[in-house]
Amino acid sequence: MDKKDNLNNVTDLRENKDTLIEKNTEQVVTNKKPLPWKRIIALGFAFILVSNIIFALGVYKFSWHDSITRTVLRVVPYPAVLVKSRIITIGQYHKDLDSYKNYYKVGQKADFSSEEGQKLFKTLKEDLLNQLIEEKIIQAEAKKMNIKVSKTEIEDEYKKLVEVNGEDTLKKQIKDYYNWDMSTFKAKIGLKILRNKVEEKIKKDDIANKKSKVDELLKKVKGGEDFAKVAKENSEDQSSAEGGNLGWVSKGKYAQEFEDAAFSLKPGEISNVVETIDGLNIIKVNDKKENEVLVSRILIKTITLDEWLKQKKTEYKIRTLIDINKINP
C-alpha cells in the first residue's frame, strides 16, 4: 500500500470520527428534555414563600417601615390584629396612623421629634389601634343585629357638614389635614353612623331589660315606702349612701330631661320613670325655691357603649400581632 492510499485511509477515518461525534451531539441535544412546567411553578412558589417569610420577619420582628415596605403593605394584607375572623391589616393601620399624624402636624403644629411629641405619638398609636378594634367589633355586632347604613344616610350627613363648612372648604380641610380622598372620608362618616346606631340599639335593649325593675321600685315609693330607704338599697348613683339626696339643684347642672321633670314637680311629689343618658331615674322633690329644687333620686344605670365594648373585647379574643412600640414617628 503506497503512501497515497495510507493518507486516504487516515482521511476517511477522521471523517467517520467527525460524523460520529456530530451524530452523538445531535442525539444528546435531542434527548435533553425541557424543564417541566410543574417544576417551574414549584420553584416560583418556593421563591414567593421564602420572600414572604423574609418580608414577614422584617415587618413583625424588626418593624420595617420604609417606603418600599409601606408600598407592599398597601397591596399585601398582612394582619396587624385579629378580631375573631376579622382582620385589621398593617397597611390599614399605617395608612390611618399617617393620616392622624398629619392632622396633628398641620392642625396642631405637633413636633413628633420633641419629648412631648413622642408622648403624643405613643398615645395616638394606642388610641388608633383601639379605635380600629372597636370598629371591627361594631361591624360584626351590627351584622348580627341586622343594622345597616345606607348611602343616603351617609350623603345626608355629608350635606350637613357641607352646609356648615362649605363644600370647597370641607374638601380642602379633609385633604390638608388627613390627606383623605372623598370616598375615604365618606367611609369614615358611615362608620360613625353605624357606631351611633349600635349604641342606640344596645341602650334600647338594656332599658327594656331594666324597665321592670325600675317600675317595681316606682310602685314601692309611690305606694308609701320610704324613698331614702329604697334609694339606699337600690340606687346605683353615688348619692345612694345619702338616701339619693342630691341637694339643691339649679338649672344647667343635670340632663335636660332630668331638670324638666324635677322643676315640674311640687314638694313631696315623685316623678314617673325619667330616661336620661345616665339611665332610668325616679325623682323626688323635697323642697323648692324660685330657681332651685331640693332633689333626691333613684338611678338604675343603663349600659354605655364603652362598657359594652369592654365586654365584647373579652369575648372576641383579640390577638395583636404587631408591636406598635417599635413604630417611630
Score class of each variant (00 low, 15 high):
residue 77 P to M: 03
residue 69 T to M: 04
residue 7 L to H: 03
residue 85 S to C: 00
residue 43 L to G: 15
residue 71 T to P: 00
residue 52 N to D: 06
residue 32 K to V: 15
residue 96 D to E: 14
residue 77 P to T: 03
residue 125 K to S: 09
residue 74 R to Q: 07
residue 17 K to Q: 13
residue 115 E to R: 05
residue 74 R to S: 06
residue 19 T to W: 04
residue 85 S to E: 12
residue 51 S to H: 05
residue 118 Q to G: 02
residue 101 K to V: 05
residue 25 T to D: 11
residue 106 V to C: 01
residue 67 S to V: 06
residue 45 F to E: 08
residue 56 A to K: 00
residue 36 P to S: 12
residue 12 D to C: 06
residue 126 E to A: 14
residue 110 A to K: 08
residue 100 Y to G: 03
residue 86 R to E: 14
residue 109 K to E: 09
residue 8 N to S: 12
residue 16 N to G: 11
residue 37 W to F: 12
residue 125 K to L: 09
residue 111 D to G: 05
residue 64 W to T: 08
residue 67 S to I: 06
residue 99 S to G: 01
residue 128 L to G: 05
residue 123 T to M: 11
residue 38 K to F: 10
residue 23 K to G: 03
residue 51 S to A: 15
residue 8 N to H: 11
residue 106 V to G: 02
residue 35 L to Q: 09
residue 65 H to F: 06
residue 51 S to L: 13
residue 114 S to F: 04
residue 55 F to I: 09
residue 12 D to V: 05
residue 101 K to L: 11
residue 113 S to D: 14
residue 52 N to W: 01
residue 116 E to R: 10
residue 41 I to K: 14
residue 106 V to F: 04
residue 86 R to D: 14
residue 82 L to T: 00
residue 15 E to F: 08
residue 107 G to C: 04
residue 72 V to Q: 01
residue 79 P to H: 02
residue 13 L to I: 14
residue 38 K to I: 13
residue 14 R to E: 11
residue 58 G to L: 05
residue 52 N to G: 08
residue 40 I to P: 08
residue 30 T to I: 03
residue 74 R to F: 00
residue 121 F to D: 10
residue 15 E to M: 10
residue 112 F to G: 06
residue 73 L to M: 05
residue 100 Y to N: 09
residue 88 I to H: 00
residue 101 K to H: 08
residue 69 T to L: 02
residue 65 H to Y: 07
residue 6 N to F: 06
residue 42 A to F: 08
residue 38 K to D: 14
residue 120 L to W: 09
residue 59 V to F: 01
residue 66 D to N: 15
residue 97 L to R: 05
residue 51 S to D: 09
residue 78 Y to I: 00
residue 85 S to Q: 06
residue 29 V to R: 12
residue 93 Y to V: 01
residue 47 F to I: 15
residue 70 R to Q: 07
residue 92 Q to V: 03
residue 67 S to D: 11
residue 49 L to A: 15
residue 26 E to W: 06
residue 74 R to I: 00
residue 74 R to N: 08
residue 118 Q to E: 15
residue 21 I to P: 00
residue 18 D to I: 14
residue 42 A to I: 13
residue 100 Y to E: 10
residue 38 K to Q: 14
residue 94 H to E: 08
residue 88 I to A: 01
residue 31 N to Y: 06
residue 108 Q to V: 07
residue 96 D to H: 11
residue 66 D to I: 04
residue 65 H to D: 15
residue 39 R to Q: 10
residue 80 A to E: 02
